[in-house]
Amino acid sequence: MHRLIRMGQIEFRLLIALAAICVALSLATDTFLTLGNLTSLLNNNSVNLIWAVGLLVVLIAGGIDISFAVMSSVVQYVAAVWLLKMGGGNWFFGFVLCGLIGAGLGLVNAALIHGFRIISIVVTIATFNVFFGLLMFFTKGRSIYNLPDWWADRVILFEHQSADGNWSELTLPVAVMAACVFATWFLIRRTNLGRQLYAFGDNPEGARRAGVNLAVMQALAFGWCGFMAGMAALMQVNIVREVVPNALYGRELDVLAAVVLGGARLGGGKGTVLGCVLGVMFVAVTQNGLNLLGVSPFAFKMIIGAAILVAISTSNISLGQGRAGHREAAQ
């Protein structure tokens, strides 16, 4: 009980809400609480979760990143072209290449933000346009289908056939997602670097005076987010088995909404991996439930949006007015 209270209001409330929805759906449908449905929920949301934890780190450090989804598109295209040129490559090269390109793109954001003291929303909106525009320009919007086999083949980690003959399975993206979630938790909770990130997001001036290296903090936050975008890129290709340059365009705001729903604060210093995962799963389970209940797929988003608005209006998540750093200089 003590731990639950320490868990934080938002996480706790979200957990209750999620549990309530799960119970309700298990009672209302006989398909929700099946191994097949639950595993597919995980399979389908692994990419979102990988992005979410990456974005979480940026939010904790007091920034915001709009460019991560488009970054993933760039990563998968460049990686695909490169790997094909290399003659195929393998998983090892895939991970290294995607991780490096992603982190590199994140560092571009960090360099602009720190080097010229431009706020992150401006920089990432700009790089969003640059990344996407250049990608579409150079690729002319053409998709890549002839991917190396290792990349396009499904890697099944667990499978089970139930009595009625339905298959349920967990695939590689779930494992990668779990690793990313764990790594992020470890970074922000268990290492001194992660704690400095919190401090930086919480009170940048205080962190600077304490001797925290702000350039490294920005690089770590945006680099981490970029790295996660790289991982998400690799896994998304593994799921859809093609590289479509504009497939991920527009996903960033949904992920942002879910992460903020999970208690991360725009402005920095607040947010947990648990809340972040709960936020994404809350949206995912709601959507899944509506689907199972036979609600028209066109109504999903409307209900999700309404749920977010209601959640904001009732939870009194006092995020304060104004955006990051919006404090009049207390001289």
Binding site: I308, L309, I312
Partner: peptide, 25 residues
């Protein structure tokens, strides 16, 4: 409510998009 404009307008954006898709299929 004092909620952050990014969050509120994001929620409204998702809602309106859903509403629109629902109405027009």
């Amino acid at each position: 409510v004092g909620a952050h404009p990014i969050l509120v307008s994001l929620g409204m954006m998702i809602f309106l998009r859903g509403l629109g898709e629902f109405l027009t299929k």
